[in-house]
Design a protein around this nucleic acid. Structure first.
Length: 607
RNA sequence: GGGGUUGUAGCUCAGCCGGAUAGAGCGGCGGUUUCCUAAACCGUAGGUCGUGGGUUCGAGUCCCGCCAGCCCCGCCA
C-alpha cells in the first residue's frame, strides 16, 4: 500500500502549503495509525507547528483538513479525516479503495511488491554483496554460525526479491596462521592426511586442529615452524598448496551438507582469494600516507578510537614477521568488492553478517577503507551484527559436556523433536499417515522452527535458544504460521477448486475482478488491511536489514487470519461473499508463502 | 582504565523519524467445538520501561550521570 501512502503524503503536503504558505518546509509526518480505532494512517504534522505558527494545534489541523476537502483525489481515497487528541489527523481509507487494492494483488505474482530498480527508474543496478555464514576450514560448523547463515540468507532473499543483483559470499576461513599450525602438525603426526583425499574425516581434522592449537600456544619451536609454513603457503609453495587444498575439500563437503539441508546457496570466496591483493593493500596504504610502522608492525592509527592511555588505537595490517592478518584480508576484500568490474565486484552496498563482538574490528576496517578512498561516496557498507545464542541458563549455548554445539546435531535434534511431537499428535487424533509424510512434515517443521526462532527476535540482542519454545504450536513460532497455511489448503481441498482463490489463476487484469468482490464483515476488513501491509514491510526489511520485522508481520497476519477463519464462514457462505472470501484466503496463503519463502522456510499442505 | 552493547509484565520478546491510555506470546485464571484441521478463537489478571537528572507541546525512544549483565581493546578470525 506504499503507493497509496505516497499519494496521501503528497496531498497532505499540498494541503499544508495551501493552508500555511509561510511555512518553508512542512512535513505531514504521515505514519500508519498507532491503533486500529484511529483508522489507517495518522498525520502528526500539525503538532510541531503550534509554536512557529502561534496557533492551537487542533486549529492548525482543522485548517489542513479544510484544504484536504478541496482535493478530489483525496476524497477518492479517504473518508473525511478526523481530528483527534491534541491535534492528530486520522485518516481512514474508503472501502472501495481497499477493495481495489486487493483486486490488484489477486493476479500479481509479486503481490504488489515493486522492484527497487523500477522505483529508481531503470538503469543497471549495482550489486549488493551479502557476506555471511563464513565457517572456518578444519572446524565443524557450530551454533555460532547459525545466526550468520540464517540471517544472511534471509537478507539475501529479500534483496533478490526486490530486484537487486546479490552476491552471496561465503568468506570462509581458509587462510592464515591456523593452516600453518595444522599443516605443521599433520606433517609430523599424520602425513597421509596431506597426501590423499579422504585419509581423515572432518572429525579427525577438528581433533588435529585442537592439538595443533595447544602446541602452538606452548611450544615456541612449533610456533616458528608454523609461521614459516604460513609464509610458504602464502608464497605458493606447491606442496603446501596441495596439502591446503585437501584440507579445504574435506571441510567443504561437510559444510555443503548443512547448506543443502537448510536450502542455502552461497558462493565460496574465502580469505585465500584475497592473498594476491594483500601486499598492494599495504603498499597503497603506505602511499596514501596512512601506514605507520610501530614496534615493527605496519599500523594505521584510527581516528576517534583510543586505547588505555588515550592514544589512538592501531589497526595492524602487517605483522612484525612480515605476514598479513585478518585486517589485511578484510581490507583487501572491501576494496575488491567496491572496485569497478572487472577488477572487482562494483558493489553499491556491502553487508557483513557477523556477531556483534566484531563491531569494533569492522568499524576500524571501514574507517581505514574509507580514508584510503576505497569506498565510493554513493556506496554503503554495513555491519549487520547479531548477539550470542544463549542456552536457557542465559549463558553461551553449550552441550552438557561443555562443548560448543555442532550445527548438524542441533538440526537433527530439532527434526527428531518435531517428529516425536507429530507422532504423539497423530496417535491422539487416530490419524494414519505414512512414513514419508511424517518425515517430510518433521523435517520441514523442525528446520523451520530453528530458522524462525532465530529470525523472529531482533538480531541485535542475544537470544535464548529453546527447542520447547521454538517448536511450540502456539505463539510466535514457525508451526503456528505453517498451520495457518495448512488451514487455507484445507479450505481449498474441501472447496475443490484451489484455482478460485489462488493468485496464480488467470483472473485477467486484476481490475476486472474488483467489481465482483464484496466484503462486509469486520474480520474481512481487518484481514484486508493486514494483507496490504506486505510491500511496506518488505521495503523496511530491505532498508533496516531486520528480518524480525517480517516475522512479526507474518505472525500478525496469521493471527488476523485465524480470527477471520474462526468467525467468518467461507465455504458455507452465499455468493458473492463466498468467492470474495475464497479470494482473501488465497491472497493470505500467497502472502504467507511469499513471506515464509523470504525467511527461507517452505510451507506444507497438511501437517 | 577505554570503547561498544543490552536492561520493558512471572518467563521469552516487540516497540519504526520522539506522538494518543506501553504491546504480543507463553505461563496463570475463566470461557467457546453438530460447522472449512480446537495445532484455533474469546475474555481476564499482570508494568515506577534498571536508576537519577536534562531537552520539549509530547520521552520506553534523544542528551548527561550512575547501577547491573555481556562483548571488544597490537600482531587469532
Amino acid at each position: 500500500m506504499l503507493s497509496v501512502l505516497d499519494a496521501l503524503n503528497g496531498q497532505l503536503l499540498a494541503a499544508m502549503e495551501r493552508a500555511f504558505p509561510e511555512l518553508t518546509d512542512p512535513d505531514p509526518q504521515l505514519v500508519p495509525a498507532s491503533k486500529p480505532e484511529f483508522g489507517d494512517f495518522q498525520a502528526n504534522g500539525a503538532l510541531p507547528l503550534a509554536k512557529p505558527l502561534r496557533q492551537a494545534p487542533r486549529q492548525i489541523a482543522a485548517a489542513i483538513v479544510a484544504q484536504l476537502g478541496a482535493d478530489s483525489g483525496f476524497a477518492e481515497l479517504c473518508e473525511p479525516p478526523q481530528i483527534a487528541g491534541p491535534g492528530f489527523i486520522n485518516l481512514t481509507l474508503r472501502p472501495d479503495c481497499l477493495t481495489a487494492q486487493v483486486a490488484a494483488r489477486l493476479g500479481d505474482p509479486r503481490l504488489g511488491v515493486a522492484r527497487a530498480v523500477e522505483e529508481a527508474g531503470g538503469g543497471s543496478p549495482a550489486p549488493v554483496v551479502v557476506d555471511f555464514s563464513s565457517p572456518n576450514i578444519a572446524k565443524e560448523m557450530h551454533v555460532g554460525h547459525l545466526r550468520s547463515t540464517i540471517i544472511g540468507d534471509c537478507l539475501a532473499r529479500v534483496l533478490e526479491f526486490r530486484g537487486h543483483p546479490v552476491l552471496r559470499l561465503n568468506h570462509v576461513g581458509d587462510w592464515g596462521t591456523q593452516f600453518g599450525m595444522l599443516i605443521t602438525h599433520l606433517k609430523q603426526v599424520a602425513p597421509e592426511a596431506l597426501e590423499h583425499p579422504d585419509a581423515v574425516d572432518l572429525g579427525d581434522l577438528v581433533a588435529f586442529y585442537r592439538q595443533a592449537k595447544a602446541r602452538f600456544d606452548e611450544d615456541e619451536a612449533f610456533q616458528s615452524a608454523s609461521r614459516e609454513e604460513v609464509v610458504k603457503l602464502q608464497r605458493g609453495d606447491p606442496d603446501s598448496l596441495k596439502a591446503w587444498r585437501l584440507l579445504c575439500d574435506q571441510s567443504r563437503r561437510e559444510f555443503q551438507k548443512i547448506y543443502d539441508r537448510l536450502d542455502i546457496h552461497l558462493d565460496e570466496r574465502g580469505e585465500s582469494f584475497y592473498n594476491p591483493y594483500l601486499q598492494t593493500v599495504v603498499d597503497d596504504l603506505r602511499d596514501a600516507g596512512l601506514l605507520v610502522v610501530d614496534d615493527g608492525a605496519g599500523c594505521v592509527f584510527l581516528e576517534g578510537m583510543t586505547g588505555k592511555d588515550g592514544n589512538p588505537l592501531p589497526l595492524i595490517v602487517q605483522k612484525r614477521d612480515g605476514g598479513f592478518n585478518y585486517a589485511t584480508t578484510d581490507l583487501a576484500a572491501i576494496r575488491y568488492r567496491f572496485a569497478p568490474a572487472p577488477q572487482g565486484d562494483g558493489a553499491g552496498r556491502v553487508i557483513y553478517v557477523t556477531d556483534a563482538g566484531q563491531a569494533s574490528h569492522f568499524a576500524a576496517v571501514f574507517q581505514v577503507a574509507r580514508r584510503a578512498g576505497w569506498i565510493p561516496g554513493s556506496a554503503s557498507v554495513e555491519h549487520v551484527s547479531f548477539g550470542l545464542v544463549q542456552g536457557e541458563d542465559g549463558k553461551k549455548l553449550k552441550t552438557r559436556a561443555g562443548d560448543t554445539v555442532r550445527l548438524r546435531d542441533l538440526l537433527d535434534e530439532a527434526v527428531e523433536r518435531a517428529e516425536a511431537d507429530l507422532r504423539r499428535r497423530l496417535e491422539e487424533e487416530g490419524r494414519q499417515e505414512d512414513d514419508a509424510f511424517i518425515a517430510q512434515v518433521a523435517t520441514t517443521v523442525g528446520l523451520a522452527a530453528v530458522k524462525y526462532a532465530d529470525l523472529s527476535t531482533n538480531r541485535s540482542t542475544n537470544y535464548q535458544f529453546s527447542f520447547d519454545r521454538m517448536l511450540a504450536l502456539t505463539g510466535n513460532t514457525a508451526p503456528y504460521l505453517l498451520y495457518a497455511v495448512v488451514r487455507i489448503a484445507g479450505i481449498a481441498r474441501k472447496g475443490g477448486d484451489l484455482a478460485v482463490c489462488s493468485g496464480s489463476v488467470a483472473l485477467g487484469s486484476g481490475s476486472a475482478s474488483s467489481a465482483s468482490l464484496r466484503f462486509s464483515e469486520p474480520q474481512e476488513w481487518a484481514l484486508i488491511r493486514e494483507l496490504l501491509r506486505l510491500d511496506a514491510v518488505i521495503v523496511e526489511v530491505e532498508t533496516e536489514l531486520l528480518p524480525n520485522r517480517l516475522c512479526n508481520y507474518l505472525f500478525e497476519l496469521s493471527q488476523v487470519f485465524n480470527r477471520f477463519y474462526d468467525q467468518v464462514p467461507v465455504l458455507r457462505a452465499e455468493e458473492p461473499a463466498r468467492a470474495s472470501r475464497l479470494a482473501l484466503c488465497g491472497l493470505t496463503a500467497d502472502t504467507l508463502k511469499l513471506g515464509l519463502g523470504l525467511l527461507g522456510i517452505p510451507t506444507l499442505e497438511r501437517m
